[in-house]
């Protein structure tokens, strides 16, 4: 399924200079905030959980997911260069699967690693908070990558839709409206984080079983559907 050539092309496109700068900006901001918070108010478990939950998991992870997930395929479809992948004896779902792996890896590196570092800076992993949120970021990276890769495959405005989803749904509704919380990657990831940390500092609206089932289902379905869409992707119509 995994094609190293497709992966290499995707990595190079994703980590091109401009995109890498955008990918690096939010993690840098998180670390700067963490250093400032630690310097101003000292190590505090609740503050650490607030920063990691409010900024890292609710905002940074989905945005990195949007950039990596849609960026893994969207620009190629937009400019038509995907034709060089499609005109090959390669199974289309294999192209999607490979791009998913790359998007997950990039999202994890640019979101979970800085979350861990920020957690260590904030309270030195007191009460397992850094590890819990890092696990949440890792888990969320998988589901976001699959969702946004699908979005990049089906829509020319994937980044806009992705950001609206990430910022409005996940960050706003996801933390305010009770119903929306159940259908939120963030909450599913928090359920996993809660299991890791124990205690009341990391909590989720959904139970662990529901969360895991939904995470797996969303990832598998989005990937499968993206593969189907790529099989019938039409490149013409400009005439």
């Amino acid at each position: 399924m995994y094609d190293p050539t497709v992966a290499r092309l995707t990595y190079r496109a994703l980590l091109g200079r401009r995109r890498a700068l955008i990918l690096g900006a939010l993690p840098l901001l998180l670390i700067v905030i963490s250093v400032a918070v630690r310097a101003l108010s000292g190590a505090d478990d609740q503050t650490a959980a607030d920063v990691l939950g409010g900024f890292a998991l609710a905002t940074m992870v989905p945005i990195i997911g949007v950039i990596a997930g849609t960026g893994a395929i969207g620009p190629e479809i937009d400019d038509g260069s995907v034709v060089y992948l499609l005109a090959k004896p390669l199974k289309r779902p294999a192209i999607i699967f490979t791009k998913l792996i790359v998007a997950i890896a990039v999202t994890m590196v640019f979101s979970a690693v800085p979350t861990m570092i920020a957690g260590l800076i904030l309270n030195g992993n007191g009460q397992q908070i850094a590890v819990a949120y890092t696990v949440a970021a890792l888990v969320a990276s998988i589901a976001y990558s699959a969702l946004f890769l699908l979005l990049g495959t089906v829509s020319r405005h994937a980044v806009v839709f992705g950001l609206v989803y990430a910022l409005v749904w996940e960050a706003l509704f996801g933390s305010l409206v009770p119903g929306a919380r159940t259908l939120s990657v963030q909450q599913w990831a928090l359920a996993v984080a809660h299991k890791v940390a124990g205690g009341d500092l990391v909590t989720s609206e959904v139970g662990l079983t529901t969360a895991v089932v939904l995470l797996v289902a969303v990832t598998v379905l989005a990937t499968w559907y993206a593969g189907q869409k790529l099989r019938s992707l039409k490149l013409a119509g400009e005439e």
Binding site: R12, Y84, A87, K88, P89
Partner: peptide, 21 residues
């Protein structure tokens, strides 16, 4: 919808885009 056919087809598209990096 037949990927195997590309073993026999070579395509030179009109569009310019081609992994410029």
């Amino acid at each position: 919808r037949n990927e195997e056919i590309y073993r026999h087809i070579g395509i030179v598209p009109e569009r310019e885009a081609m992994y410029d990096f």
